[in-house]
Design a protein around this nucleic acid. Structure first.
Lengths: 342, 342
DNA sequence: CTTCGATTTGCACGCGTGTGCAAGAATGCT
DNA sequence: AGCATTCTTGCACACGCGTGCAAATCGAAG
């Protein structure tokens, strides 16, 4: 079987050649690989045999050209190496594949310029849908995506667009829960830790947390700075503990930050969690369940987000509509926060 | 500018329309977007203006069809959510983008069946190159990739293929260094911890470590089981410490395993690292530098691997040759291992 | 003004596929 | 057997682009 394939060198085999070998027309070959097409079982088998023998694979570039549907879904993302985003990417890519889509990843750093380039590539490859996990697209290019008939899905980007599917998490409820738990734990001097990157999601968690505290006549220290990473949390913990009135509880808007805070507090200041200081995070990354941290946090509803995203990608383009869906982030109770008043 | 675009609905604009608006032939449009093509500055400007006005973007599907070069590079990968692989993916995708390639991610779980499906997709989209980060491709499909003129690059897959570019890490040297450091630290009862997944890389680290110890007349406990994850390490640590003669040093073939071991040893058995037990890992994931662990480990040469991979992707297909390149994983000295005899 | 070379332009073809249309084959029914 | 109906099949066109080739344009030298 390999002799025929070996003779040809460094080139793909076309439907034409398969047709010749099978003794049918090229249309028959095309139909053999198109589900639901009208073709007899006998010719289909002959085509498949010939295709297998020659090592034929339908050219999706040409198919996409004809069908006006490339089968490609673009994922615009930054900070892939981050625990939460890499998990989301894992789920999304797998689910999209199972739905028959090919996943193109556009790594778009922080700069808006890169996001623009990514959106352009999305258009170049005629992607069926574009999913933006981070970075805010220019309105002009976003509109081009929509006008070209692409579905545009924004995950965790609370800034709203027209004609766009928005998927988000109920930050308000989580933040209020965090504030409530801190009060119930008997903590008196809460603090909020966030990064200097003003992501809409992070800002929402911060604002709702502070607001909920204010309702209960409490004010919180606010520390914001650096990237959304462990090191920023470590620095936050260090600086907060050297204040004249150090906090006794911290809501970190991200688990990575929370881990940093915990390490600083325990190792640089010998404080105990949750007795001396309570910590609560957000995302439920793998490390939150590691026994060094055992962090009380809110779980990103990754499965729900993924399932809903795939549904939105699959629906016919005629019925795309602006929509906005919010999922709840359930509390994961662990040991980094005292449950009741001391 | 948007009126024209608004009138059309849900469809892409073609070079034809741009040509009409600019008052030139379609060839001119094509040449305007082809670097190095023969075209006067004046017409180029008129084309670019018209293109911008209509929101034209070259169709890379059609271009790929013509050029026999899709500009797509496929990354076959599993366990994306893992710290090491997500970092590698981050670097690779960014570097490939900068080289003008579009990155298609094929999330191929563990099953070989999925890897086969991934390779098939690679062929369907006529990818210029395929990079396999995990999973072993069937020889038959791998051969088809090569016969079709694709470059096939295997990273950290020590199983060798003909006509393939292999990129790997010097596991032997690292493992020998680990053994040496453990001896020099005055540890007497070393152990090796690995997962139950017999990846070539992991096996190589294990075998060279044991071999190096044997040269020094030492034998090691070997614990292998579970996936390559924190929990497996935690379990390993727990079980090793309940042995009649528990080890006093552990080489974990992965940082994730090492973190698990450290947590088990410290929190379940109140042992101190590195005094009671020395730990050394591999990969230098982010968590290794977290102050809870401060893990001595070997750094995956991600930058070097990335740069070399891009070089291999870019070279003309005429000169693809089987080759095999190995990079060193430098030791990152931290505090989880005693430096000198006690 | 003529001639020649260099540059630019348009025409037409090909890349590999899907699909409407009409013709042909097969089947069922009277 | 004759006719109606359903299935198959092949032809031809379209998808959007790159590019060789020849015609056209331009500038400069004679």
């Amino acid at each position: 079987m390999s002799e025929a394939a070996n003779r040809r060198q460094a080139t793909f085999v076309s439907a034409e050649e398969v047709a010749r070998l099978a003794g049918v027309s090229r249309s028959a070959v095309s139909r053999a690989f198109t589900p639901g097409a009208s073709i007899s079982v006998e010719t289909r088998q002959r085509v498949e045999a010939a295709a297998a023998q020659l090592g034929y694979h339908v050219n999706h570039l040409a198919r996409g050209l004809m069908r006006h549907e490339s089968g490609i879904v673009c994922l615009v993302v930054a900070d892939i190496h981050t625990p939460y985003l890499s998990r989301l990417l894992d789920y999304l890519s797998r689910a999209l594949q199972e739905a028959g889509k090919a996943v193109m990843v556009l790594n778009a750093g922080r700069a808006t310029k890169n996001v623009e380039a990514a959106l352009r590539q999305t258009l170049n490859y005629r992607a069926d849908a574009t999913i933006v996990l981070s970075g805010t697209p220019y309105r002009s290019i976003a509109r081009q995506c929509l006008e070209s008939g692409q579905r545009l899905i924004l995950i965790n980007r609370d800034d709203h667009f027209e004609q766009t599917v928005g998927i988000s998490v109920d930050h308000a409820k989580a933040a209020q829960t965090a504030a409530m738990l801190i009060r119930r734990g008997g903590y008196r001097r809460p603090a909020l830790v966030s990064s200097g990157i003003g992501t809409p999601s992070l800002n929402a968690r911060r604002d709702h947390f502070l607001e909920a505290l204010r309702m209960a006549d409490l004010t919180a220290q606010v520390w914001e700075g650096g990237p959304t990473a462990y090191q920023s949390g470590f620095q936050a913990g260090t600086e907060l503990m050297t204040l004249p009135e150090p906090p006794d509880a911290v809501f970190a808007v991200t688990d990575l930050l929370a881990c940093g805070v915990m390490d600083a507090v325990r190792q640089r200041f010998n404080k105990r969690v949750p007795d001396d200081i309570g910590v609560i995070g957000f995302d439920d990354i793998d490390q939150a369940s590691w026994s060094s941290y055992d962090l009380t946090t809110f779980s990103q509803p990754v499965e729900a987000i993924t399932a809903y995203t795939v549904r939105m990608v699959e629906q016919k383009s005629a019925e795309i509509q602006a929509s906005s869906r919010t999922f709840e982030a359930p509390l994961i109770w662990r040991s980094s926060l005292r449950a009741t008043l001391p």
